[in-house]
């Protein structure tokens, strides 16, 4: 992460980065060059930290949703959460006429969060059958709700001015470029707490893999577990998308990659998924600001561009998925 902070439009030696970070964290040592200090502490450090938190959050949400709906394709995008967040954000950006950054950024984040939760609640309500949450229904409801939200989002975009549209595009493709220290405590707290709670539920998540009837016979209250998981994953997705926009493919790719290496036991899977998701998005963000310097690419473009071919390669290797 320190190395990631040192690389960017302006290269800064790793030793300087260490010194600046140490100075801010411990208050000791010299402050050094104020320009470098500002780049490191005000811009890059929060950005790298946010990328890590967002990567971890999206990857964990994906892993849980895949188990929740017993479908290897599930992630926050498939279940419509991401589209809910997009609609909320786009509404604020265009109709609210608020610019990203500063107070306006808070408005966009809040709306994205509300959008993700609302989409989650809708999918939750539609995914029930005889009072039980049915996996296939949940997926279908998620996809349908997602399409509706996407079409409304597209319609709202038609009303946007070109400047607003550019902001919308950048937001929908995801970015941690505007990261500020103030965004970190809440996002970090939610991601850490969710990962912890979900890992504690790991044994029950494992039982869910055996199918609903068997999980019930193993002592799991399947319906209640599904409800809890849905709430946590919507909360997780909402929080993360609110600060970073629609970064796709992390939630789909990272959990599968971890499963292939350490197996499906959630007590190992979830913490490692969080870790790998964090590392992955820090690297992707690093790429996003270096491949085309000094311009930046949205994260979503890179996650899909890097993720999809890699994912297809994994699919070809993994024989277990053939029978799924």
């Amino acid at each position: 992460m320190v190395v990631a902070v040192s690389i960017g439009a302006v290269g800064i030696p790793v030793s300087d980065v260490w010194r600046i970070l140490l100075h801010h964290v411990t208050g000791r040592g010299a402050a050094g060059d104020p320009a470098l200090d500002q780049i490191v502490w005000t811009f890059r450090a929060p950005r790298v930290a946010l990328a890590a938190v967002v990567g971890a959050g999206l990857a964990v949400a994906g892993a849980v949703l895949q188990t929740l709906v017993t479908n290897p394709l599930a992630d926050p995008v498939v279940l419509g959460f991401s589209y809910g967040a997009s609609l909320g954000a786009v509404l604020v950006i265009t109709l609210g006429g608020v610019a990203i950054g500063g107070l306006g950024g808070l408005g966009v984040s809040g709306a994205a969060f509300a959008g993700a939760l609302a989409a989650g609640a809708l999918v939750f309500a539609l995914g029930q059958r005889r009072g039980r949450l049915a996996p296939t229904r949940l997926v279908l409801a998620g996809v349908a709700v997602g399409y509706v939200l996407l079409s409304v989002t597209s319609f709202v975009q038609l009303l946007a001015t070109p400047t607003e549209l550019r902001t919308v595009m950048f937001w929908m493709l995801g970015s941690v470029a505007g990261a500020q220290w103030s965004q970190l405590p809440v996002a970090t707290g939610v991601v850490l707490a969710s990962t912890l709670v979900l890992t504690m539920l790991g044994r029950r998540l494992n039982a869910l893999l055996a199918g609903d009837e068997s999980a019930t016979a193993l002592g799991v209250d399947v319906n209640r577990l599904r409800a809890v998981l849905l709430v946590i994953s919507a909360l997780l997705t909402g929080t993360v998308i609110a600060v970073a926009g629609g970064v796709g493919f992390v939630g789909l790719m990272i959990p599968h990659l971890v499963r292939l290496t350490v197996g499906a036991d959630h007590r190992r899977l979830l913490p490692l998924t969080a870790l790998l998701g964090a590392v992955y998005l820090v690297l992707v963000d690093l790429l996003s600001r270096t491949v085309n310097r000094p311009n930046e690419l949205p994260l979503g473009i890179l996650t899909a561009l890097l993720g999809a071919p890699f994912f297809l390669w994994l699919l070809r290797r993994d024989k277990g998925l053939d029978t799924a």
Binding site: N206, G211, S214, A217, G219, V220, R259
Partner: peptide, 23 residues
């Protein structure tokens, strides 16, 4: 509770063929 009941009763049901990824 579901847990208390499962400490008394275990079931072997017909295999659903689901890929669990578990050993």
């Amino acid at each position: 509770s579901a847990r208390a009941a499962a400490r008394r009763t275990a079931a072997v049901l017909q295999d659903t063929g689901a890929v669990t990824g578990l050993s």
